[in-house]
Design a protein around this nucleic acid. Sequence first.
DNA 1: CCAGCATAGTCAACCCGGTTGTCGAAATGC
DNA 2: GCATTTCGACAACCGGGTTGACTATGCTGG
Lengths: 154, 154
Amino acid sequence: MTRSGADLALLLLGGYRSLVESVTAELAARGHADVRPVHDFAMRAIASGADTASELGRRLEVSKQAAAKTIAVLLERGYVRRGADPDDARRKRVEVTPLGWEVMHQGEALFDARRDEWAGRIGPERLAELERQLAELVGDAVVRPEAAGGAAQD
Amino acid sequence: MTRSGADLALLLLGGYRSLVESVTAELAARGHADVRPVHDFAMRAIASGADTASELGRRLEVSKQAAAKTIAVLLERGYVRRGADPDDARRKRVEVTPLGWEVMHQGEALFDARRDEWAGRIGPERLAELERQLAELVGDAVVRPEAAGGAAQD
DNA sequence: CCAGCATAGTCAACCCGGTTGTCGAAATGC
DNA sequence: GCATTTCGACAACCGGGTTGACTATGCTGG
């Protein structure tokens, strides 16, 4: 039985969703109900040096306005803080707060736990093989989670 | 080298995106520039019996209003047509037009071509194995493409 | 038969994370 | 000095979701 190409696409999406929903739900249960994949992704980029709206936009491959919006949300939720840039009066520097780091660490641990579960179900060798194949097929293009990263919600 | 769980999630998403973007771009090149994955998905559901807004909403696991919105878009673009239901004056029946079918058929063929390419790169056996594993891990939950199914766009 | 309830589609407002355009301020380079 | 570039902020808009409310229609049990 050969699957259709569209089936394959939805299987991949389903796999992604399965992981993300599980992690998002657990983070919510731990009190972080407002964390979306794209927020986590943005925080990681900020933590790794994209600490202005413009740079974040470039890193995420979205407009600087979109990046600024994301920063605004993160600010509002206390995941990042912002201040002036001593070297350039136009810029504002952003950095991840301890709360932001906490959320990122928990998210990371939860994703790893989910991966471990998958490894337990199909075997670590086969999972590693799956990852290798995907990496080969997809390459290393920037893949940014989308805002509506969750499942259909009722 | 063991990958992180978050890496795995993004690999899956990248795989999905890779397929979808390729198909969407080719459909655009063929004159169907306004087709989104969620539209195609909705048309398939309509074609398979979810031919009212309420039923489509249930099928897609979104609100009836969201389903109606999608139908409105499809109507506007000529992919579906709509008429009264002779058996129930509350209802409106929707059906896919020849243009809608054309788009779906092309999309299907393009997805299958992409899958064939993947099979050519990692081997048909390994691709089938990958699909089996994903199916096992994900199960058969309804997976609906999201609106912003494309990649980050500049 | 009919009141009460359920269901249909429509209208409206809102959300979220994107887009593009514009603006004044600051920085850069010739 | 000045033309150009870059910065963040403001604004409007988009697409695909959400919820609430409404009128019309259908169903059912007393």
